[in-house]
């Protein structure tokens, strides 16, 4: 038992990211309101950002900006002193993609609302069948 607890604690942020992601996925599968689904989608994408940023962490590392870079004395830069910059770069891209998707999804929701005057999936479907 203590072994399991130790594993959880050692990798707790991976557990958190999975919980977050599953919350988002659950919302997308089960909610019937289109905006709630969009919110779920955003939680889902944010969870992946947490995952990637966790990969980049390095114990004893600082932010990946080299200090006194243009100063006179040149000192050797060692990789262990700085956290991994690559996941941060990748997540900048993922954030931008998430924003773009959110914008498009909201635009679609507005179109749907203008047409059916509701965002509840059940009501929209009954209106489609009725007409």
């Amino acid at each position: 038992m203590s072994g399991i607890v130790a594993t959880i604690i050692a990798k707790y942020n991976y557990w958190i990211y999975i919980c977050l992601m599953m919350i988002g996925l659950y919302a997308m599968i089960t909610k019937r309101n289109l905006i709630k689904k969009i919110v779920g989608m955003n939680i889902f994408q944010t969870a992946i950002i947490l995952f990637y940023v966790s990969i980049g962490a390095k114990r004893g590392g600082t932010i990946p900006i080299i200090e006194h870079a243009h100063g006179g004395q040149s000192h050797a830069v060692e990789a262990v002193h700085y956290i991994n910059p690559l996941p941060h770069v990748l997540m900048l891209t993922a954030i931008v993609v998430a924003v773009a998707t959110l914008g498009v999804a909201l635009a679609l929701a507005i179109r749907i609302y203008n047409r059916y005057r509701t965002l509840e999936e059940d009501e929209i479907l009954s209106r489609i069948r009725g007409s």
Partner: peptide
Amino acid sequence: WGDPSSPASLHVSPRYIEKTMEETSVPNIV
């Protein structure tokens, strides 16, 4: 988590950290 000897910290990224200044002259590695 945070292991400095994980593959992600050892394979590609060290080159960015160590060579950025001499290759691009930009202190902000990101």
